[in-house]
Design a protein around this nucleic acid. Structure first.
Length: 1017
RNA sequence: GCCUGGGUGGUGGAACUGGUAGACACGCAGGACUUAAAAUCCUGUGGCACUCAAAUGCCGUACGGGUUCAAGUCCCGUCCCGGGUACCA
């Protein structure tokens, strides 16, 4: 009988739920193991086949660790605050909480189907007040802390206040200096904002007046908003930010302590962007008439102070405050025009247009601190206001950007570094470190590195500046003009921001009538009626960004129901941090940096005992979607080429429907000749260049799958009727691979489709959900197949071409335990001793017996040597594979193992019982069923992993490949006990050896024990 | 540009510290069973050459060099693809 996966999988999923099999215990004598997946944002599209890839891998590890005797924490939850739900709410008026709830239900259903071993009692949702109470609590801690550079950690702000109170020296408040005791409340608040780890400050943002919100950089395209196309301007606005920069050095250094991929670590290092150099001040020369400019100075940051003698100009960022003060009357008009121009160019636009050099002369000059020469001061938008001091010294001879600027505006170029490599002497701009200083008075002749050291010393000595470390990392803007997020627990009293009292948390997200900004441009929360702290104070109206909840959620899983603390001490001390974290690499510089930041902060305040959230991180690859593109072919020879290539793949029948993604309809889309390279099995050569054309296809969409349709279909017969010129059209359709193509017409066609392999997303109409696979082949099959697809960390397009192999394997596995093999007549246990699985199942309604094949056939006879060898080979291989996260090779090994045992007609309990355990992490449902049929009353989850015994896999002989000059010629079976000399002798005595020696004496013979024999002739 | 991961049959991919390249699977071809199909099972399957056959030889891990008895694996150079990032001074 065939294995009935539908009944079996359902049965065991119900069993696990009913028995709470996967509940993790906070009080256990077992060693702990915490394996965590990045929790999903519950989107409307549901789970796609890419999601479970990582979840399956982590589930395998979790189940494996349980079998190995660990107390495993393997939880799941939802990152349920976020933009899409809010956008949907704006469009439909439906409360985001409602759509989120629906989406979560869908996700849960889908996940339950896959049989994950999550402890669902620990589920968390970031949008749940019981959860975000603690997100707000951590925010308050950040607000009430400062970073003490002396102790190099965060401390309560009270310590700083005490320090201010005690010290006699004055503090700087705005433009004046006062004693702390003399400051007003407002002044004190403003002063402390410069220290708090969560603080309010003026920051440059992308502001869209029409939408009434700040936009993230990726939401702005070509100076207009991505949604709606409204103009976006750069605006200085009060913003809540987190002082992540205080942790820059620790975030950088501690990367060396964690086992994360080098790629992610490197990305974080680049993001933090540490650079060492020096600050340097330039005095302004001859202030323009009527302005008190002589006291003004410009401070720059440079990593190349050694090139200081090459400075021929200074450039300020257009936003730099000094611009207004130093500009001369003659240049005022021009400078203003330029500043306005620069202001309205978005960040993105500036970046996209890197090659376009723009700038303006301010009319002012600065005095070179070493040569006293007068250098012109320019403004240019290649200088960023947010980095360093917003001003650079222009050294065109040794910096390619300064060079481009000088070229554009005809500024002087002065060489001060000579390359060590004479060949490079002619280069106009030489910007590497491989050289020595020239024309540089104090440092002439010194190699760059030494020159830097010496000149910094000189700069410090003369009080012009000092050696300095600069980070690219910027403080994280934390406020969003959005509704669907955690309210920031701050209220305002007389315009002074104050923290909500801890005991008043959570500040619950209020109900509002519309999810839009107010008419006056205030955030949506301003619409809330009677929403006041203690009935009288205005709350902060912005909400937290999407990454707030995910920055600490891993801690909440340890003790998710705790109402007094974010997690109890005991729980935190027991679970520590995540042992294995699995998720996408796209979070490299977002979530994965913030979660490290919050972890270090909580550690500083002694709430947790660890410095890092996750010891080991694995990034699963993306499963890409494949969608159709239509390509117009106008040249007959190309069509012939295709026909030749796919001749034997012509389908016998013609289907009258072709699927096209809606985005292709009624739109001109660009597919370039170069992109055809994605069709990897066709080699397009130059013959085809220029002969592939694209036309605008206007096809009537005749059907869809409702408003949520991912695909629409087009009736080709109808299409051809409306466009008779395509009556001979040639369609080649590909659903993943070409062999599934469909042809139309009968000859010189004009149409083909080419596939586009892209990230799976709803907007690209290429989402494939796991449900269909589960329904058709079963969950175990989906699990094995997703693992079998290739290495976990590799991205790959989704296709189901190989799934039948996995499906066959599951049936073979079943048959191994059930085939009506005849047991040995004289066996000890006596043939098919357990014939009926029905009554050993823990649940009623086991498999029904339908025919003779349904005989559970396991013998208690002693296993043969060969059988033991097969089993132990597999045990070893699978545990090694799991240890190095190579799940695809394990699946191959199961196949090999089952094939070999089938060959051996093995039906021994001593083999089949451990085998079920070994397979159970990968295919838990069928493993449970087999386990129960083997007579066990308990779930296989807590069985004991069989111990690998090397003695069973030891061979006493080896079939040596014998090679001559490295080329393998033949094999010879030799006893492994033989010494090298004996092997040599044996091999030389062989007739074949003599044949290949051709009478010559071997120069050298290499014998590698258990590996190879190589004879050098 | 910079950082990073890759490039192996018709396809997905194996090959762990240099030691039998192509495991396992898909696909394809042929066969068995069947009235037929599906399912299942068996055989073959990197390319080229030669042969009635058995066998054998040569070439093959993007390309060009190198180290080594031996290179997919190590070193140098080049090309191509994916991912990230970008006027960071």
């Amino acid at each position: 009988m065939e294995y009935n996966f539908r009944e079996t999988e359902k049965k065991w999923q119900e069993y696990w739920a009913k028995h709470k099999t996967f509940r993790a215990d906070n009080n256990s004598s077992k060693p702990k193991y915490y394996v965590l997946d990045m929790f999903p944002y519950p989107s409307g599209a549901g789970l796609h086949v890419g999601h479970p890839l990582g979840y399956i891998a982590s589930d395998i590890v979790a189940r494996f660790k349980r079998l190995k005797g660990f107390n495993v924490l393997h939880p799941m939850g939802y990152d349920s605050f976020g933009l899409p739900a809010e956008q949907y709410a704006i469009q439909t008026g439906q409360h985001p909480a409602v759509t989120t709830e629906n989406n979560i239900r869908r996700y849960r259903e889908q996940m339950d189907k896959i049989g994950f071993s999550f402890d669902w009692e620990r589920e968390v949702r970031t949008s749940d007040p019981g959860f975000y109470k603690w997100t707000q609590w951590i925010f308050l801690k950040l607000f009430n802390s400062w970073y003490n550079p002396e102790t190099d950690k965060a401390e309560p702000i009270e310590k700083l206040i005490q320090k201010f109170e005690r010290q006699k020296s004055k503090v700087t408040v705005g433009a004046s200096e006062k004693l702390w005791g003399d400051c007003s409340e407002k002044e004190r608040s403003d002063l402390l904002m410069n220290y708090r780890l969560a603080y309010l400050s003026e920051a440059w943002v992308n502001w869209c007046p029409q939408l009434g919100t700040v936009l993230a950089n990726e939401e702005v395209k070509d100076g207009v908003s991505e949604r709606g196309g409204y103009p976006v301007e750069r605006k200085l606005m009060p913003q809540w930010s987190l002082r992540i920069t205080a942790y820059a050095e620790r975030l950088l250094n501690d990367l060396d302590t964690i086992d994360w991929s080098e790629a992610i670590k490197e990305q974080q290092r680049n993001w933090i962007g540490k650079s060492e150099g020096s600050s340097l001040r330039f005095q302004i020369a001859d202030p323009p008439a009527g302005q008190a400019g002589s006291k003004l100075q410009i401070e720059v940051f440079t990593t190349r102070p050694d090139t200081v003698y090459g400075v021929t100009f200074l450039t300020l960022a257009p936003e730099n405050e000094l611009v207004q003060q130093i500009t001369t009357a003659e240049q005022k008009q021009k400078v203003e025009t330029y500043v306005n121009y620069a202001k309205n160019r978005s960040e993105r636009e500036r970046q996209a247009d890197v090659k376009k050099v723009t700038g303006e002369f301010t009319g002012a000059y600065a005095i070179h601190p070493f040569t006293s020469a007068k250098v012109p001061i320019w403004i240019g938008d290649y200088v960023l206001a947010g980095y360093g001091t917003g001003a650079v010294m222009g050294v065109p001879a040794h910096d390619s950007r300064d060079f481009a600027f000088a070229k554009e505006f005809g500024l002087e170029i002065k060489k001060v570094i000579a390359p060590n490599d004479k060949a490079l002497e002619k280069e106009e701009c030489f910007d590497t470190y491989d050289g020595y200083a020239v024309n540089s008075e104090l440092i002439n002749g010194l190699q760059v590195k030494d020159a830097i050291k010496k000149i910094i010393g000189e700069i410090e000595k003369r009080g012009l500046g000092k050696g300095k470390v600069q980070y690219r990392l910027r403080d994280a803007i934390f406020g969003r003009q959005r509704y669907w997020g955690e309210p920031i627990p701050i209220y305002y009293e007389n315009g002074i921001p104050k923290p909500v009292d801890e005991k008043d948390l959570p500040v619950v997200l209020p109900e509002i009538d519309k999810y839009l900004p107010t008419e006056t441009g205030e955030p949506p929360l301003a619409r809330a009626k009677d929403w006041k702290y203690k009935g009288k104070y205005e709350y902060e109206k912005t909400t937290m960004p999407g990454w707030a909840g995910s920055s600490w959620y891993y801690l909440r899983y340890m003790d998710p129901k705790n109402e007094k603390e974010f997690a109890s001490r005991d729980a935190i001390n027991y679970w520590q941090n995540v042992d294995l974290y699995i998720g996408g690499a796209e979070h490299a510089t977002g979530h994965l940096l913030y979660v490290r930041f919050w972890t270090k902060f909580l550690r500083d305040l002694n709430y947790i005992p660890v410095d890092e959230p996750a010891k080991k991180l694995i990034n699963q690859g993306m499963i890409q979607g494949v969608s159709e593109r239509i390509l117009m072919v106008t040249d007959k020879s190309i069509v012939e080429h295709f026909r030749e290539h796919f001749q034997n793949q012509l389908p016998k029948q013609i289907d009258s429907t072709i699927f096209v993604t809606p985005e292709l309809v009624n739109r001109s889309y660009n597919i370039f000749v170069g992109q055809i390279r994605t069709v990897d099995d066709i080699d397009f050569d130059d013959r085809f260049k220029g002969k592939l054309t694209l036309i605008n296809v206007d096809i009537n969409v005749t059907s869809g799958r409702g408003s949520d349709a991912d695909w629409v279909s087009i009736d080709v017969a109808k299409f051809i009727k409306s466009r008779p010129e395509f009556s001979e059209a040639f369609f080649l359709c590909r659903d993943g691979y070409w062999h599934a193509g469909k042809f139309y017409g009968n000859g010189e066609g004009k149409f083909i489709t080419i596939p586009a392999v892209e990230k799976m997303s709803k907007s690209k109409f290429n989402v494939v959900t796991p449900d269909d696979i589960c329904d058709q082949y079963g969950t175990d099959c989906l699990r094995l197949y997703e693992m079998f697809l290739g290495p976990l960390e590799q991205s790959k397009p989704w296709n189901t071409n190989g799934i039948s192999g996995v499906s066959n394997f599951i049936r073979k596995l079943w048959r191994l335990y059930h085939s009506p093999f005849e047991g040995p007549k004289d066996s000890l246990g006596g043939g098919p001793s357990r014939s009926d699985g029905g009554d050993v199942s823990p649940l009623e309604g086991g498999m029904s017996r339908s025919d003779k094949g349904d005989v559970f056939n396991v013998s208690d006879a002693a296993p043969s040597k060969q059988e033991l060898k097969v089993l132990h080979k597999t045990i070893k291989k699978v545990q090694d594979d799991i240890d190095r996260f190579s799940f695809n090779t394990s699946v191959s090994n199961f196949m090999i193992c089952v094939n070999e045992l089938t060959e051996l007609k093995c039906n021994k309990r001593a083999i089949l019982e451990p085998l079920a355990i070994v397979i159970s992490p990968y295919a838990p449902h069928i493993a449970e069923e087999l386990w129960s049929r083997l007579g066990h009353k308990e779930s296989i989850t807590f069985a004991q992993w069989p111990e690998y015994k090397a003695e069973y896999t030891v061979e006493n002989s080896f079939n040596y490949p014998v090679s001559f000059n490295g080329k393998t010629r033949f094999f010879t079976e030799l006893d492994l006990a033989l010494s090298k000399e004996q092997v040599e002798k044996e091999v030389l005595a062989l007739e074949q050896t003599q044949k290949y020696l051709e009478g010559k004496a071997p120069k050298k013979i290499i014998v590698v024990h258990n590996k190879i024999v190589n004879i050098v002739v």
